[in-house]
Design a binder for these strands. Structure first.
Lengths: 218, 218
DNA sequence: CCGGATCCGTAACGATACTG
DNA sequence: CAGTATCGTTACGGATCCGG
């Protein structure tokens, strides 16, 4: 939406004054999955170009949405969400939850698929009651991707990489299987039986519980 | 974000392929408050220009977010949200709820203030438990604006105009008082005592309950 | 090489005039 | 009243170049 502001005394318009420019919300989407470096972001969103990317990052830093941090042992710099930025999780995932329903037209590049982006949106689509009182983690390996979902009494948090805490379930599958499951064209029971999903850790009861917690009803 | 799509198989990106262009989310914001005509929208968002406005409306119709309807007795055409569009209430209000926290800088035009836009965002900022089991309506008259909030067991729905159903509370105040209350610079009790708010209908108990249901904690 | 900054052609926006 | 047409201005997208 350009750096021109709407200039309206409306909370939605003021949010969009910061978040409304092209690419901005997709950048925050990436940060919702964890800290990322300039080069990683550029690899994911190459059409931004280095100039646009550095522009947006500087703007988000200035508005207190992200901050630069040194990442673990090697001090390679990265960007991550501030508390204010983390509070965007709810609205952005709500938007993604809405987007799950949308038809996938021919302009979508299927090779751009990343399971963690779908999983991220699933963490807001389900019913919080399905995980009330539950506290555990699930880890996914989809093709070369690794990500996990931390469940904590009704709240679900998806992040890239392996889980820091012990996981109740670890599964492995390919992208086609993952998409078929999300789109309801396949069932967890069938995929497990046929070997399309491998249960690397956890028992069948936990496996079933995981899909119940994540259940998405189109 | 232009009619160019991101082309990513990501629910957030697909949502933004439809909603990401400049002005689009502000249009939907207006429809969340009720049906509106071309001319009314243009009066609210004059910087769009007639061409941009008709472009966006056509795009939203094509994507099934809004539809054209004939408004009550006189058959003046108007646009209103479809079911799919109405489902955007949650994500957009979540964004507005986040925006309530943002500082109001000098680029904001104070004369653009509309109480119903603030109230709209407040309907998503509070705790649903505060209105669990409650079913009633509140009506507001802020300067020349009239709008109402329908409470229904944890869900709050703000709309322009008077309430179709009987209201539990009807209040009247000016914009300065409304903003001071929302920003926590004034309290309902003081405003009522000093006559800054007039309680046109309902008792003090209902008045207090209303503010509890709507309570916004910065 | 990584994180940027500079430059430039193209596409979207903002304003106004015009039409059914 | 509800749009279309036109046009100057601004942002985007892609490539190239700079400093550590």
């Amino acid at each position: 939406m350009t750096n021109k502001t709407y200039g309206q005394l409306c909370p939605i318009a003021r949010s969009l004054d910061i978040l409304g420019d092209r690419w901005t919300l997709l950048l925050i989407r990436e940060f919702l999955l964890g800290p990322k470096r300039f080069k990683e972001l550029l690899a994911i969103l190459p059409a931004m170009g280095t100039n646009r990317l550095s522009e947006r990052l500087a703007m988000l830093v200035q508005n207190g949405i992200i901050q630069q941090v040194a990442r673990t042992p090697s001090s390679l710099p990265a960007y991550e969400l501030t508390d204010l930025g983390e509070q965007l999780r709810k609205p952005i995932l709500a938007l993604g939850s809405w987007g799950l329903k949308l038809p996938i037209d021919e302009r979508i590049d299927p090779t751009s698929a990343r399971a963690e982006l779908i999983a991220l949106c699933l963490t807001s689509a389900g019913d919080p009651k399905a995980s009330a009182g539950l506290r555990e983690a699930y880890e996914f390996q989809v093709d070369a991707e690794v990500f996990h979902i931390q469940v904590n009494d009704g709240s679900l948090l998806a992040r890239s990489g392996p889980s820091a805490e012990p996981v109740a379930v670890r599964v492995q599958c390919d992208m086609a299987t993952f998409l078929a499951l999300v789109q309801g064209q396949d069932t967890p029971a069938r995929a497990l039986r046929e070997g399309d999903i491998k249960l690397l850790l956890g028992d069948r009861q936990a496996f079933t519980r995981m899909f119940k917690v994540l259940e998405y009803k189109p």
